[in-house]
Design a protein around this nucleic acid. Structure first.
Lengths: 340, 340
DNA sequence: TTGTACGCGTTATCAG
DNA sequence: CTGATAACGCGTACAA
């Protein structure tokens, strides 16, 4: 229980000089004698001096805490993105508070207010799928606290900072990949229509079709809200027309892809063997599946998170003006599975 | 940019009284007049006063940060346990710093030193599989900062606080379950021998055999260090003797179970159809597998995390003496999969 | 019942 | 080049 907190005062007493000199020496003030600096810095090192964050934060009127609001930590994408955020934040002396909205708007508002009271220095948000009004986030910007929207595109919010995966290109590549493998009837299974990515990806899909002279067929497009029954209903729709069943599928997210595949196997779909599909995610579990997707669209969530916190810190430090709204796109990568 | 931080001083000026009266009123000091209290508290509420954490922390000589060191966030168990910790910590005004050791002792030591410098108020640790010396953690206790070991049992550390899953009972139940289903040749696939749970679970396994008059066969036991090749080698060992192949398996962790199942299917093992297995984890992914485990041992990681932080906060608040070493066991639950 | 004064650890300003 | 002092926001012993 040798609890001797090493403070500036403590060092000053040891060195028989004033606290302010010690402080300046440690912060390399030009007005301090080199020899004095050396003495102070050596002693500080030997005694393992570490400045007290709370004191500095108090002085600087900062909390060095940034808040994250996202729908769900059970989603691998978000968990991985958090990793990118935390890593980068920690390196820069910031801590992170995470709140899960569970895609519930009320909860999201509560969390925003809670974080505001926690005096976070900034906010990173993946909005709930119901968020159309942004006043609970705007209050941050009104008091000078930057907000970065990431992962989910707040299309109703024109003036905001965003960091998004380039999901359009990802979906384009995936569709092109399937076309190149000879598929003519490629289905698209989108996510909730409330999520903008659903449409961005659809655009990637349809542009790939067009650029490669594959005709578009509206009956090959369906949507799900991620709910299992809903997904199965969507799949049933896609395969409703016996003479026009898709031979390939691009899915908004791997879990719904898995649901789809499971369903098709369950009903012993006749052309299941030739069926090929691709989804967003690149889940590590794929190697254990018996009917795995032929490729995955890796969204690089860590990179998305890192870009988000990087931008946020620049806004906090006024390296970028708050009103100079930024849009950062993070590339996806098509990963072809080697299933030997 | 209406940036007016509401402080005690600000309230005091508004109310034309002293800062200390405001402070006392908000903290419900008995010496303050009821009417004054009401006035102050109303004003504080209306102006959304929130006490500045940094100031309080500075005063109380606390950081309100607790550190967590664990092997890996990609492991679902740890991710879920973190959730339990963060939730509870946040409710009690604490923040959390997470560090991943990647089961590397050097990295673990670095993280410990980093967290010490960060002035955390306490530590929650899942040790790396190589940790036998605990001096990098002991330094925390020496300066009065409590350390709670969780998830992984530090068997070489006799005097410490721990929160562990009751993995013995979990494994006992799983084995018993397989016995009740008529299996006589049940294999046990353990994890790294350096991890204590490997042996605790083995004890559960062997006790279940004994209590149910099933004879033990050493050739039905194998170990893996989680590495895929290693796991497959272990499985090959278990199935080496053609006349004595196991009909069921209890696995240390679901990922290695999946590896095992995949391998057996790959080689078209003749008796694969009757083969039944159970693993620790209860991964949500199981429903997508074609040859899923028949049951899972749910380890309730959130609860483990919550118990760890709960104990840690009690130690921090001196509700439990540091030297009064605690051991908390969290029950597992056998989940039988309904695979319709 | 309320107010004054001080300290927590740090940095900035200004005086020496 | 160095030191004294004030301030950040809060809590509390002590004085009034």
């Amino acid at each position: 229980m040798n609890n001797t907190p090493v403070t500036l005062k403590f060092l000053a007493e040891k060195l028989k000089m004033s606290v302010s000199t010690v402080s300046k020496a440690l912060n390399n003030y030009p007005t301090i004698n080199e020899y004095t600096k050396k003495r102070v810095q050596e002693m500080a090192r030997d005694l393992h001096f570490t400045p007290n964050k709370s004191a500095i934060n108090l002085k600087e009127r900062k909390s060095r805490i940034i808040g994250i609001i996202l729908p769900n930590l059970l989603d691998h994408f978000f968990t991985r993105s958090i990793y990118g955020v935390e890593q980068f934040a920690m390196e820069h002396g910031y801590n992170v508070i995470i709140g899960q909205s569970h895609d519930d708007l009320e909860k999201e508002i509560q969390l925003a207010n809670m974080l505001l009271k926690s005096r976070v220095d900034g906010l990173i948000v993946a909005i709930s799928k119901h968020t159309q009004d942004f006043s609970h986030f705007d209050q941050f910007e009104q008091i000078g606290l930057p907000v970065v929207y990431y992962t989910r595109n707040p299309s109703f919010n024109l003036n905001c900072h965003k960091v998004l995966g380039n999901t359009f290109r990802g979906c384009y590549q995936a569709t092109k990949f399937l076309i190149d493998r000879g598929h003519k009837k490629i289905a698209y299974l989108g996510g909730p229509k409330m999520i903008n990515f659903t449409h961005d990806r659809f655009n990637g899909y349809i542009n790939a079709l067009k650029d490669n002279q594959v005709s578009f067929d509206a009956s090959l497009v369906a949507y799900t809200d991620f709910d299992k029954e809903n997904t199965i209903a969507a799949i049933q729709n896609l395969f409703a027309n016996q003479e026009n069943t898709p031979t390939a599928l691009v899915a908004f997210k791997e879990p719904i892809l898995f649901d789809a595949v499971k369903y098709l196997r369950g009903i012993n779909h006749p052309k299941f063997d030739e069926f090929e599909c691709v989804g967003f995610g690149n889940n590590s579990f794929i190697s254990y599946l018996d009917s795995p997707p032929i490729a995955s669209i890796e969204e690089n969530p860590e990179s998305v998170g890192e870009n988000a916190i990087n931008l946020l810190l620049k806004l906090i430090n006024r390296e970028i003006e708050m009103e100079n709204y930024q849009k950062v796109m993070v590339d996806c990568k098509l990963v072809i599975h080697d299933l030997t």
